[in-house]
Design a protein around this nucleic acid. Structure first.
Lengths: 138, 138
DNA sequence: TGACGTAGTCAAGTAGCTTGACCATATAGT
DNA sequence: ACTATATGGTCAAGCTACTTGACTACGTCA
């Protein structure tokens, strides 16, 4: 219960922080997409796998994020079938805002924990977590 | 990230455990409803507040759970407008299955933590959590 | 070169929510 | 006691983020 409630508080905190930064046309699910697109970008199929949705749904989400200016499509360097999705500058700014909001939510936790406790917390969560699988819950 | 991934793993574990127990017609969101209905039950309005959805949506969910045999409606003892939603025996059996699935997911964690670490983990999550607000993330 | 696999899109359908309107009952003001 | 307003619940319609199914373009391997 505590775990679910804490996760929920984190998501809510990030979402409200991002909205307060002026990005009012995004849902939390978009943040999970941004995580996958940041860095070297990803194809629609890779995004779909990351979010565990169909590639049609991922394609629709990409269209929406492109229309809103957060993402751009580029030809794929090695595969003429594929197209690479990349964050625009606006998308990167939004990602930074999300990072700051997350840090703000977690700050009271970070400052109140001893390093040993922080390590215990990290390893405890690692026991449960499936690395790399960050996506909306349902 | 770890926190979200761990929460996700817990929800997935509960969901698959519940399905494996034969309750294949439920979604994780229903589990959050069961949490509120167990014990003394709740009205549609109370359920809606708990899940942070409209009472129309909560009423629809109640209809569905009644149709599937997990919930029953009873006249409210003190308010003739209201109707009390209660878990049936099947609903309670499902709740027990969910509890067992959650315990199974968390067991490796519980056995690997020292009591002090468990306490630190609990208080860390308490720092973030809003007590009583257990509901789907989005 | 041909058979098959994969990336992506188009179109249509669905599930779970929403908003809006409404009735029945409860509660407060005078 | 009587009216006005608030609250519990449902009905109906609409929306949105997904799904399934069909299809085209390109890649890969015999």
């Amino acid at each position: 219960m505590l775990l679910l409630s804490a996760a929920r508080a984190l998501v809510d905190g990030i979402d409200s922080g991002v909205r307060a930064s002026g990005f009012t046309d995004l849902r939390p699910a978009h943040g999970f997409a941004f995580v996958r697109l940041s860095g070297t970008g990803a194809t629609v199929t890779e995004l779909a796998e990351h979010l565990e949705i169909t590639k049609q749904a991922a394609s629709q989400m990409a269209d929406e994020l492109i229309r809103k200016g957060y993402v751009m499509r580029r030809p794929h360097p090695t595969d003429a079938r594929a197209r690479l999705l990349l964050l625009t500058e606006k998308g990167q700014a939004c990602t930074r805002a999300a990072d700051e909001a997350a840090a703000r939510v977690l700050r009271p936790l970070a400052t109140s924990l001893s390093p040993a406790e922080a390590g215990a917390l990290r390893s405890a969560l690692l026991h449960l977590a499936t690395p790399g699988r960050i996506r909306p819950i349902w």
